[in-house]
Design a protein around this nucleic acid. Structure first.
Length: 424
RNA sequence: GGAGCGAUGGCCGAGAGGCUGAAGGCACCGGUUUGCUAAACCGGCGUACUGGGAAACUGGUACCGAGGGUUCGAAUCCCUCUCGCUCCGCCA
């Protein structure tokens, strides 16, 4: 959420930012409406408060007269009619305010200057690590996984539906092994506090991290309870400190959690649906950082590095993209995507998205800190990234590590967790 | 699921329709004094919105868990909700 002051004083920043996202066509009219509504809102505030001040004076007079045993009927009558006028004005005001705040929730963040303008074709390649294996003989992961008996897509579909995965044997153990490797690395060498958070959250939390109100269709909700299954642990972790003041000495605060993630993928029907490429329920280790504003840019580099470290441990070739404004998520001001190369499907697979939200989430959630004692509270900056999402990692491991005889070589760092150096 | 009790400033805690932005204490900040530390004393000490001002500052409004209601006027009375505690029921 943006500061309403931007609408009043820095409208050009919003227009320019939305233009860079390619969203000015739809958002420009909203800005025009907001400009007028914000003027109305302040005029109504002035009108209401003026009448309240007059009423306060009158009620003081009533009190004095009553104490003195005098008649206060005139003041009571005036005060009553002011009260009626106040009620009318306040009804107007609250209608205006709810329209304004509803519209404000529709506005995405604006990206930082160094983020390229335009759609995803303007995403910038920042760096690459390792050598992608360009080998047409590598088979897709769903074929080898079925042969190895570690993936049972048919029964997953029977039990729940397509996009719900059943892992078996060493496949199931690989999920557990990867989670442990990731959490151990983040807590031990990267200094994150491990947390275990709810998979079901309320509407306020979903709004705080900007999944709502715009993306309700993408989420699973609980019948009759106004609760949602989380699409990422970002939601519960970042909401941990909602409506709190964080001690400046505790910044930056780094939290990690493993969680299952649930996504309807409503708009993506038919795309990348085979195997593990796009599923409705998956496992992920998430990284979240709360930072002071002046360090948040460096914090994003740090966090991205932590996610990359896992890919290096897994010896998977990857590349880092700086997303163009139009491809950057709703609440983010700057996002790096990490993609691994999966030779069996011949594609780069997104396995992590590392974002700096600036104060956009913190303003919705009211998460603040005081730089020095006695100073006014400021919003913290929030960041998060996957570290990492499992299904595509498993796909990449099964394809990148594939041997001529159909067996799979397991990277050294994962071997102690999985208990074997090879599958098949 | 049912019953009872509770929620007041950074913290503790009074107040029970108007004289309360809210006693008192703690913490914090400034000062005086005592050769340091400490103590004592004096003063200060909330947030948000909105108007005026270049600014220091200043006018107004709101805020006693949240939202409604009663009333000329609500921290105070009524209703609903949220959360916490205690008890009952149920339960992995």
């Amino acid at each position: 959420m943006h500061d309403l002051r931007l609408v009043r004083e820095q409208m050009h920043l919003l227009r320019d930012g939305f233009a860079r996202r390619g969203k000015l066509d739809t958002l420009g009219p909203i800005l025009d409406r907001l400009e007028g509504l914000e003027r109305d809102r302040r005029a109504l505030i002035t009108a209401v408060e003026d009448r309240k001040a007059r009423r306060n004076t009158l009620t003081q007079e009533v009190a004095q007269k009553k104490r003195a045993g005098e008649d206060a009927a005139a003041q009571v009558a005036d005060s009553r009619s002011l009260g009626e006028e106040i009620a009318r004005l306040e009804a107007d005001l609250s209608a205006t305010e709810s329209t304004v705040s509803g519209l404000m929730l529709e506005l995405p963040n604006i990206t930082r200057d160094e983020v390229p303008a335009g759609d995803e074709s303007h995403n910038a390649l920042i760096r690459e690590w390792g050598t992608p294996r360009l080998d047409a003989t590598v088979r897709p992961h769903w074929e080898v996984a079925a042969e190895l008996g570690i993936l049972d897509l048919a029964r997953g579909a029977k039990v729940s539906g397509t996009g719900f995965i059943v892992y078996r044997g060493l496949g199931a153990k690989m999920v557990r092994a990867l989670i442990n490797l990731m959490l151990d690395t983040h807590t031990t060498t990267h200094g994150y506090e491990e947390t275990w958070v709810p998979l079901v959250v309320n509407r306020t939390s979903m709004t705080g991290t900007t999944q709502l109100p715009k993306f309700e269709d993408d989420m699973y909700s609980l019948h009759g309870d106004d609760m949602f299954l989380i699409p990422t642990a970002e939601v519960p972790i970042t909401n941990l400190y909602r409506d709190e003041m964080i001690d400046a000495a505790e910044l930056p605060k780094a939290l990690t959690a493993y969680s299952a993630c649930f996504r309807k993928e409503a708009g993506a029907a038919g795309k990348d649906t085979r195997g593990l490429l796009r599923v409705h329920e998956f496992d992920k280790v998430e990284l979240v950082r709360y930072a002071a504003p002046d360090t948040s840019l460096a914090e994003l580099e740090l966090l991205t590095g932590h996610a990359e470290a896992i890919l290096k441990l897994l010896e998977l070739p990857y590349r880092v993209l700086l997303l163009a404004a139009g491809d950057t998520g709703f609440g983010s001001s700057k996002t790096y995507d990490l993609e691994v190369y999966a030779p069996g499907v011949g594609k780069w697979l997104e396995v992590s998205s590392c974002s700096n939200f600036g104060d956009f989430q913190a303003r919705r959630m009211n998460i603040r800190y005081r730089q020095t004692a006695g100073e006014k509270p400021r919003f913290v900056h929030t960041l998060n990234g996957s570290g990492l999402a499992l299904p595509r990692i498993i796909a990449a491991l099964l394809e990148h590590g594939q041997q001529a005889d159909g067996s799979i070589a397991i990277p050294a760092a994962l071997q102690p967790y999985l208990g074997t150096a090879r599958l098949g």
